[in-house]
Amino acid sequence: MTDLTAAGRGVRRRGPRTRWGRLRERGYPYALLSPPALLVLGLIAYPVVLVVEMSLRDGRAMNISAIGQEPWSISNYVDVLTDGDTYHSLWITALYTVISTFLSLLIGLGTALLLSRDMPARRLLRTLILVPWAVPGVVASVVFLFMLDGSYGVVNWILRSVGLTEHGPQWYFDPSTALAAVIAPTVWKGFPFFTLILLAALQAIPDELYEAARVDGASAAARFRYITWPAIRGTTVLGIILTGLWTFHTFDLIYPLTGGGPDGATETWAIRIYTEAFSFFHPGSASALGILSVVLALVVVASVFPIMRKQFF
């Protein structure tokens, strides 16, 4: 019989015997981790701290080095929270985020269901459908700007050709249509993400389930409701949360199209923060809006996520 006690003692003897040695051994992984940790702190924590500080300084100094000379104050928060424009841009942000995310999901789900079927050139189509996702936001904006041009755009040309309208809407000029015209490229760029993740989820569903359902006489709608949806709803919820957060702070698609106009019709919170900081030279108000947007996003996710997790995961 082997003497396990002796062997165990042998193993223990290889460890550090002194307190300093044990401390050094425990600290070693942390020492190795410290350079990237410091880098991450520098790149993430420092700007966050700076933004918090700027939001709590009263003044319009744009020099980062001079911000510390401004007095501490909560006036920036008071100003933005008592400004009607803040709530207007919050409402625009909510509309933009919810509608864009919902439409992206619908189109993404539709294309995912289509591409999960056996069809000619399926691989090519799966690749092509991801192209909008890879196109930079600014490029997508330029394309839609041309397409939706009120006088010479192809969309209005089609509308005029089929007799739906005499002149066609002035998409980016009229406050009543501008938001829809900004949502269009957002959806175009956003739906491939849903297609990608939902397609992956659909491929994980065993074919046997559908075959059994067919044998039992289940309709297409019933198969979707009782087999497909339960299998993809977790992925769908994740997609909604991620896309919702991305859309909430979208800037590159909106700014080149409208700059937040006309007359504030597309001024989301992201655009407002940028305008406050770089056009109006109100770094404090912009920072306060930035902090509030983070808090708002956290509150929404924190309040919605447990319900969704209970319901769907």
Binding site: F173, P175, S176, G261, P262, D263
Partner: peptide, 9 residues
Amino acid sequence: MDACVRLQT
């Protein structure tokens, strides 16, 4: 500019 847009639209 916003007022001009309002006047025009």
